[in-house]
Amino acid sequence: MHLIIAEKHDAAKRIAQILAGTKPRSHRIGGVETFQFDDKVVLGLSGHIVGMDYSPGYNNWQKVDCRELIRAEIVARPINEKIVNALRSLGKEADRITVATDFDREGELIGVEALKIAKEANPRLKEDRVRYSAIVKDEILKAFKNAGKVDYDLAASGEARQIIDLVWGAA
């Protein structure tokens, strides 16, 4: 099965319609709507599905010296359990995963967050990345025809910005 991950529900629905050439089947997995056709499943996230927070003992900022927050451990926590569980379930069944999130730093990070979750369930997943500027037929078809690699460096820059925002805001 080929799992395709879009950044939002509406984007997933439109991408599935374009790729299927017809109306795809709607199927719920753990309360999350997916769009299916042929051997493909398109899942829309809801933006970030993982958030950054301090480890226990540091996450009540008013009770911790702000200087300690600068070096305190930061952990990633699921924000949307239903989507995380759907990703795990679909990841187990998939043999290929395509990141089709927005073509920017945040989109790359959101895609990598989803990839990590799916690959925890199935480390053998083959991955690729499609890039498009608009969710219109020509752009989507061209993007899927010319799939490339995930840009882990770009995703890391997005993650660094999230960590800096957390530390700066807390301290």
Rank of each mutant, 00 (worst) to 15 (best):
P56F: 01
S55K: 10
R129P: 00
K116C: 04
I135G: 05
A76F: 07
K137C: 06
A143K: 07
Y54I: 02
G57K: 04
L125Q: 09
K92S: 15
K137R: 15
L69W: 05
D102G: 09
P56D: 00
N122D: 09
K63T: 06
S133D: 15
V84G: 01
F103Y: 14
L69H: 02
P123S: 12
I110M: 10
M52T: 04
E93V: 09
R67F: 11
E139N: 12
R105V: 15
D128V: 05
A134L: 13
R96G: 13
I110H: 08
E68I: 00
E113T: 02
K63I: 01
S89G: 07
Y132T: 00
L125W: 03
W61S: 01
K82A: 14
D102K: 05
I79N: 03
R77I: 15
E113G: 04
V130L: 06
R131L: 06
C66L: 12
L87W: 05
R71A: 11
R129L: 00
S55G: 05
R71W: 04
E127K: 05
G51P: 01
K119V: 03
I140R: 11
R88F: 00
G57R: 06
K63E: 09
G57M: 06
V99E: 02
V64M: 05
D65V: 10
R71L: 10
K116I: 01
V99K: 07
V75M: 10
A118S: 09
V64T: 08
I97D: 06
R71C: 07
L87F: 07
A118M: 04
Y58F: 14
G107S: 07
E73W: 00
I117L: 06
R88A: 00
K116R: 15
V84C: 07
D65A: 15
K137Q: 14
G91P: 08
E113Y: 10
L90C: 11
E139K: 09
R105M: 15
A114G: 08
Y58V: 02
A94M: 10
A86I: 05
E68K: 15
L90S: 07
T98M: 07
A100N: 11
E139S: 11
R88Q: 10
F103A: 14
R105A: 13
L69V: 09
E73C: 04
K116V: 01
E106C: 06
D102S: 12
D104F: 06
R124K: 15
V75G: 08
E127W: 09
I110T: 11
W61D: 00
D128W: 08
D65F: 11
N60L: 00
A72L: 01
P56A: 02
K142W: 05
K137G: 01
L87T: 09
K142D: 12
A134V: 12
V136S: 10
Y58Q: 02
E106F: 11
D65I: 10
A94C: 10
V64Y: 01
E139L: 01
I79F: 07
N80P: 01
L109G: 06
D128S: 14
A100I: 09
N59P: 00
N85V: 03
